[in-house]
Amino acid sequence: MIYDTYGCVIKMRFGAESRVENVAFSNLIMNNATGPISIGLDSSPRRPAQRKPRWARRL
């Protein structure tokens, strides 16, 4: 049970070289939560040589 949350309930940010897999949520009840779910990648460098891999799967 998530209640009175004036932010983000699930906040995922994937930076360089991060790997996230096999994450499961079930039976979440949110009551008065302003930002339920946010999933995003951090900004990556413009030069391809400086970019590092990151991935998320099976969420």
Partner: peptide, 9 residues
Amino acid sequence: TRWSIFRFG
């Protein structure tokens, strides 16, 4: 909370 519940990454 006043920020995040489950924060990853």
